[in-house]
């Protein structure tokens, strides 16, 4: 960016995304928030904020299910654990939930695998359509990165969400989507040849790819998806005696560093 660009930016901030004309109206991606978008449910508005697109009722049901089915109110799950610790340390609701949401942008679960899963399915779908052999793509991916995002799951042998999600996708008519079918084909190949299971990230990514989301849009969509599971953990933490949850005595620290020494 040139100095002139900065000087121009200093004068005004041009945007098509929206503006609040306080005391008058609010424009939200080209529509009047209260008059044109006022009958939407919040979830639909959130999707509109990301893609600028309107979704059908069944698409909204499917996308809503993606969030719902991964809302686990269990404080052993890392983002929830943080939320419960925050509540029990008597932090605030917003700080607790935002810290849980922030650490959901993780590498072994959450947003980075989400993003890579949708990208992988999109690029693989394109390559297969152009004549590439799926098995060769998968073996190359495993050889290079040792992982196919959306397949395999830390801590668990199977992903219970898979069955529910496939059932819901069939009910709502999304099971025939090309990325969805590809995700299942990848699963069958990896189960047979590499004994790898599938986790719900593959199916969620496939469903959103079939609805035309880019990886960026998909990550934005998925960002709050754990939050309904975090709230009960916060409540649990805040209602238990302060400083009491997951108590750990000094001797529970498993130390393997250097011996005692003097400064």
């Amino acid at each position: 960016m040139s100095l002139q660009d900065l000087l121009d930016q200093e004068r005004s901030h041009k945007t098509a995304m929206g503006k609040a004309f306080l005391c008058d109206r609010v424009v939200f991606r080209g529509k009047d928030l209260h008059q044109e978008l006022g009958d939407k449910d919040w979830f639909s508005l959130y999707l509109f904020s990301i893609t600028g697109k309107e979704y059908t009722i069944d698409e909204i049901k499917m996308l809503n299910y993606i969030w719902l089915c991964t809302s686990y109110p269990d404080p052993s799950i890392w983002p929830n654990h943080v939320t419960e610790l925050a509540g029990n340390s008597r932090s605030t609701p917003s700080l607790s939930l935002m810290s849980g949401m922030a650490i959901s942008e993780a590498s072994i679960y959450g947003r980075r695998p989400d993003r890579r899963a949708i990208s992988f399915l999109q690029s693989t779908n394109k390559a297969v359509k152009e004549g590439a052999e799926l098995g060769e793509i998968l073996l190359a991916e495993l050889k290079k990165y040792r992982v196919v995002y959306g397949y395999g799951r830390p801590l668990a042998r199977i992903d219970e969400r898979i069955l529910h999600t496939v059932k819901k996708a069939k009910e709502l008519g999304f099971a025939d989507g090309e990325h969805f079918q590809l995700a299942l084909e990848v699963y069958r190949y990896l189960r047979k040849n590499k004994r790898l299971s599938m986790n719900v990230a593959a199916l969620d990514a496939a469903l959103c790819a079939d609805m035309g989301m880019t990886p960026e849009q998909y990550q934005l969509f998925m960002t709050p998806c754990f939050i309904a599971g975090m709230v009960p953990c916060f409540i649990d933490g805040i209602t238990k005696p302060e400083g009491s949850v997951f108590a750990m005595r000094c001797e529970s620290i498993k130390y393997s560093g250097v011996e005692k020494r003097s400064w």
Partner: peptide, 20 residues
Amino acid sequence: NSFGYKTKIWFEEPESDNPF
């Protein structure tokens, strides 16, 4: 200590009246 953290950084000795 089945849920204890592994670390090479830090260890503690407890007070005699309180293991926490």
